[in-house]
Nucleic acid binder design. Structure first.
Lengths: 138, 138
DNA sequence: GTGCCTGCAAATGATTTGCATACGA
DNA sequence: TCGTATGCAAATCATTTGCAGGCAC
């Protein structure tokens, strides 16, 4: 456990982020349980429950700093709230309409062929596939 | 031209939407120029410029009604504003980071293989591929 | 000690809502 | 006429910002 904390601290330091109590706590929550997608609200609640009273604004700041550092990324779903994903690699998602729920696509043997050329002067940063689901009508 | 208007009216009627002046005007703007993606703000401005002073709230209402009717759809980009797409078929987009700009993927020979099975009781409503672009560093 | 972090509260920006009026069928 | 649409302004919700006090180095 102590080791895990050290890991996170090092990781933050490597990104040029001071390993403050709040940042370490949030990073711990984010990375302790494998891949996750959550909103600012959700993480804030988790932190509070875990006995780390962080301000909502700090969670916003921190998640954006983590995003800039490449530790997490923003999911491209059209929801009122922003979703952050702890898995930064090219992988894909189910998005349940109406319920605004994000699910990982289990076996990612999904494959994309014939990726188009990006326009002049641009390069591909990331490819996102969102498979939108709806409740099957009986 | 008169014919185009009639088309739109019929189309709206078929969706159970009264072809009011505002709805027809907005639909005309949306569908006159082929596929488009725009925000509420943009369409509102276009309408005003075109001499159809619609209220912003009405544009919001109307676009959501059109979406429910399947005439347009919401794009899955993570922007502050919602983007609506007049092309309802499965097709894909470039999204320019930083500039919050949506571009159509030109030759859509992009192909997805091994689509995963949706979870029990769910079905695939739509598949979205977003290729996120960034300015190529010189 | 110095400068980056944090928290709070207020500001902002997109979107929604309530209600009175206007319009299409 | 009758019920639905529209417009306006106020309300709401997520997110951002300014600034005073704290903490890491």
């Amino acid at each position: 456990m102590a080791e895990a904390v050290t890991d996170v601290e090092t990781r933050l330091r490597d990104c040029g982020l001071r390993p403050t109590r709040q940042r370490v706590a949030l990073a711990d929550l984010l990375f302790a349980k494998g891949d996750r997608h959550l909103t600012v609200e959700e993480l804030h609640e988790e932190a509070t429950t875990a006995g780390v009273p962080v301000s909502l604004a700090t969670v916003y700041n921190t998640l954006h700093q983590f995003t800039e550092a490449g530790l997490i990324r923003v999911l491209a779903v059209e929801s009122a709230k922003t979703y952050f994903d702890t898995n930064v690699s090219d992988h894909h998602h189910f998005f349940v309409e109406g319920r605004n729920e994000v699910l990982d696509i289990p076996v990612s043997n999904l494959q994309i062929d014939n990726l188009p050329e990006p326009p002049e002067g641009m390069e591909i940063a990331h490819v996102d596939v969102i498979i939108r689901l709806r409740e099957k009508r009986r």
